[in-house]
Design a protein around this nucleic acid. Sequence first.
DNA 1: CCAGGATTGAAATAAAACTTTCAAAGCGTC
DNA 2: GACGCTTTGAAAGTTTTATTTCAATCCTGG
Lengths: 292, 292
Amino acid sequence: MAGTVHERLKDCLVTGSKADKALASYILAKLNTIPFETAASLGAKVAVSEPTVGRFCRTLGYKSFKDFKDALRGDIGDRPWLIADRLKDFQARMLSGGDALAQGLQLEIAGLVAVYELAQSEEWRRAVRRLASAAAVHVAGFQTERGMAQFFANQLQYLRDRVHLLDLAGGNFSELLLTDTANSCLVIFEARRYSRMAPLLAREAREAGVPVILITDAFCDWGRDLVDEMFVVSTEFNMFWDSTAQMASLTNLMMNSVFIELGPGVEARMNRLSQLYSKFTGYVGDPSGPVR
Amino acid sequence: MAGTVHERLKDCLVTGSKADKALASYILAKLNTIPFETAASLGAKVAVSEPTVGRFCRTLGYKSFKDFKDALRGDIGDRPWLIADRLKDFQARMLSGGDALAQGLQLEIAGLVAVYELAQSEEWRRAVRRLASAAAVHVAGFQTERGMAQFFANQLQYLRDRVHLLDLAGGNFSELLLTDTANSCLVIFEARRYSRMAPLLAREAREAGVPVILITDAFCDWGRDLVDEMFVVSTEFNMFWDSTAQMASLTNLMMNSVFIELGPGVEARMNRLSQLYSKFTGYVGDPSGPVR
DNA sequence: CCAGGATTGAAATAAAACTTTCAAAGCGTC
DNA sequence: GACGCTTTGAAAGTTTTATTTCAATCCTGG
């Protein structure tokens, strides 16, 4: 049997034996609590023995009750979502061949949902207000997260003035710490293995009265008490190393929020910036560029 | 200790030992996946032993790890936390009010699936082989895609030698075009509005016999006949401007492919690079860093 | 720098969760 | 009602998961 967990269970409602039907029915009704159950506890609830639960999972095509729970963990459901069919293709491949790629995709989708959920938090609104209203915004990232910091800074520069990318090149962070820090703020991108610089910088900034926004992974145990807002994105997608790609999605979502916070007035700035780019460098197909 | 699971964990962030903080922090960040974990699997994720997880739960006032999970069930049990249900939430919002956030998520998921599909194409394999075997790799990005180029370059540098980030700072691209171009290649990140520089650079590179890989959006009409491999990511997620965030996912996926192509030998390089970082800058919690 | 408590992991042990085996019960068919 | 097939649970066995014990290590405060 193939397909999502939902589908298999529904099939089972029709084709299964009495015990199977009872199990499928109960599981569908109480999906939320299933991961907390064991084969025995579930069996007890449905008035069925433990081995029957195991057999049921095997009928469904899973190796064991445990395997079934794991499938639930990444299951996207059978929503008539725009991409459902293509997604199912991937899932099918995963189930047949243990395709690492398909598994990674599921994890990444789950992470993405989490990022979008973050955007609804109070913490998010606070960070957005800060980014929109601070006198200056400094952005830092270390190792492979340097690019993320750059990406964030470049985008924010379209929306507002006084956005600066910090880097390690000078060996100190005087750009942030030795200027007027009143009402400025700091954004740090960092993931495992954390550079010694990240908490150091966060601590210094805090001591200078500069609020800190940290975008990081789930393993960061030094951030909570050192920063004002902390956003955690998923980084484990079944790849040979952790991926910080979702920091880009978060960045983008945050830019959108800042844009909304700033109001339509920013468009003037954006146009002006484009004009400047056009004047000095030029766009494709833009006759007003510097050279033809 | 008393209170909800959430409260206890937060207390623990302040009062707990190092391992306890790491555990509390991780659990708070990934509450949704905890029901699927065992003490051992959780321990592995935060680099802590199995008994420590058990003790941690007891410190928190629970009888065992199992007891802790049961408490969690009561605490988060009624709010949706399976991906399927959380997605359903977003979808419902989209259908009811045309919620911008929900719509964005839907589009972004679809885009992500498309990126993963790209990773199975012949074109992808070609690009990967190229990135793994070229004598040198140059990476360029313009405007807000500079960060993406940097991100790509920084990651690839972990895997191989001779990766260079090009930029407009010098006003020419001699780093690529005036050195020995034999068997080198160029990667360009670019999205609307395209910098005049992008096609210019691509053309020059091609004339110099340098193959070009282009990562861009769906509107790029100048790329096809100017580059060897072209990867198109979705950029329209219902935001006030296009987002190139998925270029990061693509980059990550590509790094994974290059890693596989290069074989396990790269690990030596990666370790060496980490050692260097440790020596000159240092990691959090790494006593062998340059200063304590 | 050192003593003493706190923290931690390895190994051993205990407990639990799950599977297998097997016999009995259910159920449709002749 | 007997036959054969399927389904099920009890009991025993196996594997996985959690706890205990204990020695090593790490802090902390003198």
